[in-house]
Amino acid sequence: MATNRIIALVLLILAAVALLAADDLAVCAVCGPREGAGFEPVKARATYRGKEYAFCSVKCKVEFLKNPDAFLVTGEGEPAPAFTLKTLDGRAVSLADFRGQVVLLDFWGTFCPPCVKALPELEALHTKYASRGFAVVGVTVDDRLPLVKKATANLTYPIVQATPEVWSAYKVNALPSLVLVGRDGRIVKRYGGEADQAAMIAQIEKEIAAAR
């Protein structure tokens, strides 16, 4: 009996350690775009042009800082990669569902404080412009569903769960990453961090105003 309790306690501690460790996972800004690598433990961070990047090793940090632009692919003007992803309640959502609309894809996770802070602001944008052909789609790269559900309980825009293929196709190498898709289905611009917010809203308004 005592042995079972000890085993249960050890398992509980291991689960807690795993949960804590999961808070410091991110897509490496070097291995993500280069190899399509998924979440890895963060071993180093760097700031470049006001945005924070995470790395799976100090060596990757060195490689990135030698030539950051080599890893910052914008994809602007290119067709937004198609996807069909599931919402938190299992409903399928495709990018094609929003054909003809301006769509803001928000790649985020609950472990990313600026991402969580931005959720109410994105909800406000979605509500403000929905009637004019605009939609926000939250693409969570966080597989801890209870935390995601809690963070998004008051949101009206769809939240879908990313797959490694999708974040790799969109070359997501830092969070938050926001991708603005125009009515023609092409990537208009990518944004990240609070510094970009004013420019992003101006661009959204410009895209909404564009002829349908």
Binding site: A44, T47, V58, K61, V62, K66, P68
Partner: peptide, 18 residues
């Protein structure tokens, strides 16, 4: 800003023997 982070990381690697 970029190069100070780069050189700091290189120094960190050197100090760790990598």
């Amino acid at each position: 800003e970029r190069f100070s982070q780069l050189y700091d990381a290189l120094i960190e690697l050197q100090q760790s023997g990598e």
